[in-house]
């Protein structure tokens, strides 16, 4: 009798602990992905061109010399005002400061070319030159972006990767991959970079069409020297749109309705 009571107590305690642990999971609300905000940058419309056009006319009136008449005037301010981008080059913190100072108003006129922003290589560091340590210098030059890249890597590594044996069978997974492989056109101009991966989170409908998509790490698009990331992300989104409806199993919708696709161009680009 005592033994039964003892066992009953142990099992009851165990049940209480298990229930206490599982309750938070039961109470947790399902993942609700924020909706994607599509921002269309329309640079010429009737309204937006008015101030620029007026300005351009005013400028043109002032220019009387024949040589100057030949120049090409862009009616869009951004190209001339923007800081010169150096795709593929990972600027150093020092570079950034110096370049900011040197941003000048540029025009699309070869006759009025002003001093361009000074080019800088990865050598531009305070340390004395030692070719033996160039590789190390190049690595250091990536400090600007490394933190975010590391963070991204950590996110990927630490995020719980669902076993496909639970959600999709191997053949289902292969079918989905094969479908997307065929739709994804890699941008060929991608630089040789450490991190050429774009992670896209999808909410799928039961028929495999995409109801919501979100580019993770989208903050990376605005980092200096990461212009290619936006291009890569756009190519991945294009692939999803071309491919949909995705080849998903006819059953088990709850298991695969939230899908994360990791588009990794590293293997393809680096060979």
């Amino acid at each position: 009798m005592n033994k039964s009571i003892f066992l009953s107590l142990i099992f009851h305690s165990l049940m209480i602990i298990l229930t206490a642990l599982s309750l938070p999971f039961m109470m947790r609300s399902p993942i609700d992905l924020p909706p994607i905000l599509t921002v269309d940058l329309i640079q010429i419309t009737d309204k937006t061109t008015i101030p620029y056009a007026a300005k351009a006319t005013e400028v043109l009136e002032k220019i009387k010399k024949k040589e100057e008449e030949k120049r090409i005037v862009s009616q869009q301010a951004p190209p001339s005002e923007k800081k010169k981008e150096k795709p593929d080059r990972i600027p150093l913190p020092d570079d950034l400061n110096k370049e900011k100072k040197q941003i000048v108003k540029k025009k699309q006129n070869p006759e009025e070319i002003k001093d361009e922003i000074r080019q800088a290589s990865e050598f531009e560091k305070k340390e004395l030159f030692d070719p033996n340590q160039i590789a190390a210098l190049i690595d250091k030059s990536k400090e600007e972006t490394s933190e975010i890249l590391k963070k991204n890597k950590k996110l990927t590594q630490s995020s719980v990767k669902t076993s496909f044996s639970n959600a999709l069978t191997l053949s289902q997974e292969d079918a989905l991959k094969a479908q997307i492989f065929g739709c994804w056109s890699l941008p060929l101009g991608l630089p040789y970079h450490d991190n050429l991966m774009v992670r896209i989170k999808l909410r799928l409908k039961p028929d495999g069409t995409v109801s919501r998509s979100e580019v993770l790490d989208h903050a990376r698009m605005n980092l200096p020297g990461q212009g290619f990331y936006k291009v890569l992300a756009e190519s991945a989104l294009r692939a999803i749109r071309i491919c949909q409806p995705l080849r998903v199993p006819p059953t088990g919708y709850e298991k695969w309705k939230d899908l994360q696709l990791n588009f990794d161009a590293n293997e393809m680009i680096k060979g």
């Binding site: 298990l18 669902t162 997307i180 994360q260 588009f263 990794d264 393809m268």
Partner: peptide, 26 residues
């Protein structure tokens, strides 16, 4: 209870896409 724990792992499915077309963009 065990079933409840196990069910939470279906939250997000990840698929790695490591191949694509290397054709010029049409």
């Amino acid at each position: 209870n065990l079933f409840i724990f196990n069910n939470t792992s279906f939250a997000l499915v990840e698929v790695d896409i490591t191949r694509g077309n290397l054709n010029p963009l049409p």
